[in-house]
Design a binder for these strands. Structure first.
Length: 687
RNA sequence: GCCGAGGUGGCGGAAUGGCAGACGCGACGGUCUCAAAAACCGUUGUCCGCAAGGACGUGGGGGUUCGAAUCCCCCUCUCGGCACCA
């Protein structure tokens, strides 16, 4: 029997280390010094995906800091195109999750353009998605961290520029990202030359340009980019119109025109528009050797180092002579110490010998992002006892992909993106057959809230399952959760509403075992009616389960229980129809309330487990009511409801409708001029 | 700002072109009880009315249709994602 993989045990994480070494071996893992996100509470770095609104995903009130550190990255950007394009294969995924991933990857097609800089041999390279606005460039902007800043700045302006750059560096990510703040910047005194017009263009430094995207420098087109427009207004820089709306008036207004339109004031390119304009300018630049088309992504490589004392140690040895040396496969796993102290403070852990030269060396003291563990556990499930590899490739190819995957939306661009990346990497390694996507169908649950906030341990607003089991029982708790709201929606927990499911389950118990406790209060119950209700319930509950509509499935079960109760109160017999209804109710309820279900199954004479019993079959003939309620409308307003036999023709229905006094009254004695008939449902008479 | 999902009784929600409010919570009235709890029965969108009945009603406004919570347009608010990404 397979056992669950446990990421905290060496049996599992040795294979995470194995995979880490495979990434390194394939050139897809690298160590790089860069400005990274740092959570001051956890005292560790974070991946971009784990920074939410400028804060650590585990501490929403704690802004991340930026630190220059040398860290390990996985080259997920090498897979950006495939991760984006293959979203089209994921028809079983919710559209919004696919959209979120597409936005996160953020592919954009643009052109890198080289601007000559006055007094310099080397060009200033910028990235733009709008080469068709090139004639509208009125200034250039460098990010404060741009390497050219110091060099293009005039001597007498250096102090001012340096002060600005220093201030920008001190600002937190949140301050700098805030779109609400006014744009700031400083002129360097340097000039670039427009490659198409040879016009001199002043070069500024401003923190609204980010070093981490594109080339860290932009050509500013205030007429057609809102940010540039705001900056130009702030510093009284010229604004030129070079794109005219296809329809409507020309001229510089109170905002940049960022749509596509006809090129104007652009020499020989005038009149071109849209993709043609893009292509024409791009081609011209490429032919002139001053530009080339490039594809850029918002997605960054995945920073996987973590400065934690838990997790999976990165299997690398730092040797003064040999450099970074992978721990040989046969020496895995590198075991995590049990003491709760940073690995960097634990000489017993990090002191080792270089596997290559045998000299004293140090282990890498970082552990891997725990999202690494969750990125392939589903593959380990296909062969949990495999001892030579992370998993058996043949079994993985056989069992994958996961047909139905369920998780919270909060993982839309964390776990679900990383897992797709792993699957594609392992596909390239020939380890997963032809399976390029790990999860065929995805269902995203909503989050459970209480007092208006997502339930969490840190907020202390959670409900311990043990407490729920203690108070009302596991079955009642499960039925309540199913009943609370549609599963894909966020749900607000209510402490008292669980009373409904509790009463419902108690009623089911009494119906199945103590039907004599219900008193007869009227008459008229029939076996046929009970059987119909039972078959109707089979259809509804079965369809609702299949469609993940658990809340309405519970409602349908409650209605069946009510039908049983009414049958007793109506003096109905407890013969074949009764037994069928009770046993059906038990079977339909069993997936949500298995303790009660199995107990009742056994006590009512069921053989074996209810869970193994055949699922009830719905029979249309037995589920159909012989009569229907026909609503009669006059001029679209409901005036009468008639109980009529099923399947009346329009003429028959009209005849019956006209016999009604109320209908006649509202028709004022006139014959209806038009009649709309929906068989077995409604007839609308228009005077 | 952009993208997405939404707004229905006191509350959670049902109904995706055809009886708005299924199912449940809560509330109110009743049965039982010395009493209470539990259980059971009944009522419960709003307004007018003794009633029969009528009018209004799915965030707001307009439209399409015999008929709109449902489709279209505009506005508004809430939630989620992205956010100075060039």
């Amino acid at each position: 029997m397979p056992t669950s993989p446990s990421p905290c045990l060496p049996d599992y994480y040795r294979w995470a280390q194995w995979l880490c070494l495979l990434f390194i071996d394939q050139g897809l893992a690298y160590r790089h010094l860069s400005l990274v996100n740092w959570c001051p509470i956890d005292k560790t770095v974070l991946a971009n995906e784990q920074v939410i609104n400028g804060a650590c995903w585990r501490h929403p009130d704690t802004p991340v800091e930026k630190r220059d550190l040398e860290q390990w990255f996985l080259k997920i950007t090498d897979y950006a195109d495939r991760l984006l394009d293959d979203l089209a294969l994921l028809e079983g995924w919710p559209e919004h999750v696919r959209t979120m991933q597409a936005n996160w990857i953020g592919r954009s097609e643009g052109v890198e353009v080289d601007f000559k800089v006055r007094g310099f041999a080397e060009p200033l390279r910028v990235y733009t998605t709008r080469p068709d606005t090139l004639f509208g460039v009125t200034f250039m902007v460098l990010a404060p961290e741009h390497p050219l800043v110091e060099r293009v700045t005039e001597r007498e302006r250096l102090p001012e520029v340096r002060e600005y750059v220093e201030r920008a560096k001190r600002e937190t990510e949140i301050e700098r990202l805030s779109t609400a703040t006014k744009k700031t910047g400083v002129f360097t005194g340097g000039y670039a030359l427009n490659p198409l017009t040879d016009e001199a263009i002043p070069i500024w430094v401003a923190d609204y340009v980010l070093m981490g995207y594109g080339t860290g420098a932009i050509m500013a087109v205030p007429g057609h980019d809102q940010r540039d427009f705001e900056f130009a207004r702030e510093y009284s820089l010229p604004i030129v119109e070079v794109i005219a709306p296809e329809s409507g008036k020309q001229g510089v207004g109170e905002a940049a025109f960022t749509g596509h339109g006809r090129m104007v004031n652009s020499g020989r390119f005038d009149g071109l528009s849209g993709q043609d304009a893009f292509d024409a300018v791009a081609k011209h630049l490429e032919e002139g050797g001053i530009g080339k088309r490039v594809t850029r992504y918002r997605l960054r490589d995945w920073l996987i180092s973590r400065q934690r004392y838990w997790g999976c140690p990165i299997p690398i040895v730092h040797c003064k002579v040999c450099g970074l040396v992978p721990v040989p496969l046969e020496q895995l796993p590198v075991v995590l110490p049990t003491e709760n102290k940073p690995l960097a403070d634990n000489p017993e852990f990090y002191q080792t010998k270089c596997p290559r030269c045998g000299r004293d060396a140090q282990r890498d003291t970082d552990t891997m992002d725990t999202f690494i563990d969750s990125s392939w556990y589903f593959l380990r499930y296909t062969s949990t006892h495999e001892e030579r590899l992370p998993f058996d490739p043949e079994l993985a190819a056989h069992w994958m992909a996961v047909d139905q995957y369920t998780g919270g939306v909060e993982h839309a661009i964390l776990h679900l993106l990383y897992s797709r990346f792993f699957q594609k990497f392992l596909f390239d390694q020939g380890m997963v057959g032809d399976v390029v996507e790990p999860f065929t169908r995805l269902f995203t649950q909503g989050m459970l809230k209480r007092h208006g906030q997502v339930m969490s341990k840190s907020k202390g607003n959670g409900i311990a399952p043990e407490q729920m089991v203690e108070n009302d029982g596991a079955d009642a708790g499960r039925v309540y959760l199913m009943f609370l709201a549609p599963p894909q929606d966020d749900a607000e927990w209510s402490d008292r509403a669980i009373a409904g499911p509790v009463r419902f389950l108690q009623k089911v118990w009494r119906l199945a075992l103590e039907p004599e406790s219900f008193s007869v209060t009227r008459s008229g119950a029939t076996e046929e009616l009970l059987t119909r209700r039972t078959h109707q319930a089979i259809k509804r509950v079965t369809d609702d389960y299949a469609g993940y509509r658990f809340n309405t499935a519970v409602a349908a079960l409650m209605e069946l229980a009510n039908a049983l109760e009414e049958h007793l109160q109506g003096g109905g017999s407890r013969a074949a129809a009764w037994d069928f209804a009770v046993r059906t109710l038990v079977l339909l309820l069993n997936p949500m309330a298995p303790h009660l279900g199995e107990e009742l199954w056994e006590r009512t004479g069921g053989v074996g487990l209810a869970a193994d019993a055949a699922w009830p079959e719905y029979e249309a003939a037995l589920a159909t009511d012989p009569t229907v309620t026909l609503v009669v409308q006059v001029n679209g307003v409901r005036r009468e409801a008639l109980e009529v036999p099923r399947g009346l023709s329009e003429a028959q229905a009209l005849e019956r409708a006209l016999q009604s006094e109320r209908v006649a009254h509202f028709l004022n004695g006139d014959k209806p001029s038009r009649v709309f008939y929906v068989p077995d449902k409604l007839i609308n008479l228009v005077p």
